[in-house]
């Protein structure tokens, strides 16, 4: 019985090797790197260039929690030369697959293991996974990632060094550009009134104050009461800002309700947060996403 199984396995593997690896030329020899989020995938691509095939598990606009990977992606994970994830529960929907990756001994780089972490305010010391809003921390992740990429057979250290050097410089430039832009905002106005939970690291790096606010549900905007708008109008009055950075399905309706009920006139600005945009929509790369957010925030708060 054991022999038969072995024989079947042998035949099967031979068949697979044939199917998988015939007639595919040079491309097939490239190492495979599987990355969970599209933000990290963009960073990895900038380092490895054409030297490896980078697979992104989570495309934009897909539910990361109910998101289940396909059989094809499961095979990619098991077969990867390196798996790159964010960590700290950001990829909660993939936790089972990532655990299987670790159990199978596949090399796994977890970005948040290489930076100084911040905790989420008011969440019992839970650590904040959204490190990418601080480019200086992204540099630390890139430095650590380079060491893991070097270990992959088929990746030239020379090419990797050069590409990493170039990208590191772009990140350093981004950091300087952001420091410049935010310094131009008078310090009393360096406040983000927001319902986003991703700007903790940005605020930490650039000395901004995040003022959390509850945004009234769209269902209340047709007929709001003072109580519906209390949290948001209180935060705006406290911060004395002319712009807020909130996500709302109907921002115009929200602005009208604020003006009508509380006599507050503010600009409502939506920022990029946890995902890159589709191609051509303003944030298709990490650098673009950060530049776009920086421009929006600094223009609005400089007043």
């Amino acid at each position: 019985m054991a022999n038969v199984t072995k024989l079947i396995a042998l035949v099967l593997s031979g068949l697979l090797l044939l199917t998988g690896c015939t007639g595919q030329g040079q491309q097939e020899q490239k190492p495979s790197i599987v990355v969970t989020t599209n933000i990290l995938a963009d960073v990895v691509r900038n380092l490895v260039g054409e030297q490896a095939t980078v697979h992104t598990l989570m495309p934009p606009n897909v539910d990361p929690h109910s998101f289940e990977i396909s059989a094809q992606q499961a095979a990619q994970l098991q077969d990867a030369d390196l798996v790159v994830s964010n960590g700290l529960n950001l990829e909660e929907g993939l936790s089972r697959q990532l655990k299987a990756v670790d159990e199978a001994g596949v090399n796994h780089f977890v970005a948040t293991e290489h930076i100084e972490l911040l905790s989420v305010p008011g969440a019992n010391g839970a650590e904040d996974p959204h490190f990418w809003t601080d480019p200086a921390r992204v540099v630390q992740v890139v430095d650590a990632l380079e060491q893991d990429l070097k270990q992959i057979t088929g990746i030239s250290t020379g090419l990797l060094d050069a590409a990493t050097g170039t990208y590191r410089q772009k990140l350093v430039d981004l950091d300087a550009q952001m420091l410049n832009a935010f310094s131009a905002i008078p310090s009393a106005q360096r406040k983000l009134v927001t319902n986003h939970h991703v700007f903790g690291y940005l605020a930490d790096r650039f000395n901004l104050k995040v003022i959390g606010a509850v945004i009234p549900s769209g269902s209340t905007l047709a007929s709001p009461s003072a109580a519906d708008l209390a949290s948001l109008s209180g935060a705006i009055r406290e911060a004395q800002v002319s712009a807020i950075f909130v996500e709302s399905a109907q921002p115009d309706k929200l602005a009208r309700a604020l003006a009508g009920e509380t006599k507050i006139e503010v600009e409502i600005i939506d920022l990029y947060t946890e995902s890159l945009s589709m191609a051509g929509q303003g944030a298709e790369s990490y650098l673009q996403m950060m530049q776009s957010n920086t421009e929006q925030i600094s223009q609005a708060l400089r007043g």
Binding site: L16, C21, Q27, P59, A71, Q76, M278
Partner: peptide, 23 residues
């Protein structure tokens, strides 16, 4: 599953092109 996995890995730079399209 293995067949699918191996076959598809032959295509260079695949996932990203499809994932940039909206669902």
């Amino acid at each position: 599953l293995l067949l699918t996995g191996c076959l598809s890995s032959g295509a260079p730079e695949e996932t990203q092109t499809t994932s940039n399209e909206p669902p």
